[in-house]
């Protein structure tokens, strides 16, 4: 039971983190807050991948001549590679979204979703 819990609790907490991110994206009215929520969601997903790729009794995936190339000794490198890509994609999205934000704030003089929608329907 404890083992089961220890084996999974981090997934639960990461799920909670993702939910917080989604909450930020859906429920917050301020666009910057939405963006923060997006970042939280993405980072939580990265965490999920890295947590899932963990391996007990293994070390960082850099071949150490003393350890040889025994697969059991090194952590699975593939999720790391995927998440490097994921982080880069995430930052790119954030940058583009910030560019939108700046432009939106210039045209609508607000970052509040409701105000903007009201302004738009005018």
């Amino acid at each position: 039971m404890l083992e089961e819990f220890l084996g999974r609790y981090s997934y639960f907490m990461i799920a909670v983190l993702m939910t917080i991110g989604i909450y930020g994206m859906l429920a917050k009215r301020n666009l910057i807050k939405k963006l923060i929520g997006m970042n939280i969601l993405q980072t939580a997903i990265f965490l999920f991948f890295i947590e899932g790729g963990g391996k007990l009794g293994a070390t960082v995936p850099v071949i150490d001549p003393q350890l040889g190339n025994d697969p059991a000794k090194y952590i699975n490198p593939l999720p790391h590679v995927l998440m490097l890509t994921g982080i880069v994609v995430g930052i790119s999205l954030t940058a583009v979204a910030l560019a939108f934000l700046i432009n939106i704030s210039r045209t609508f003089h607000s970052l509040d979703e409701d105000c903007i929608l009201k302004e738009m329907s005018k």
Partner: peptide, 15 residues
């Protein structure tokens, strides 16, 4: 702009 921002949000969720 606003439409695209909303699309970006949803698209990111999708991704």
């Amino acid at each position: 702009l606003v439409a695209s921002f909303r699309y970006l949000m949803l698209g990111t969720v999708a991704g």
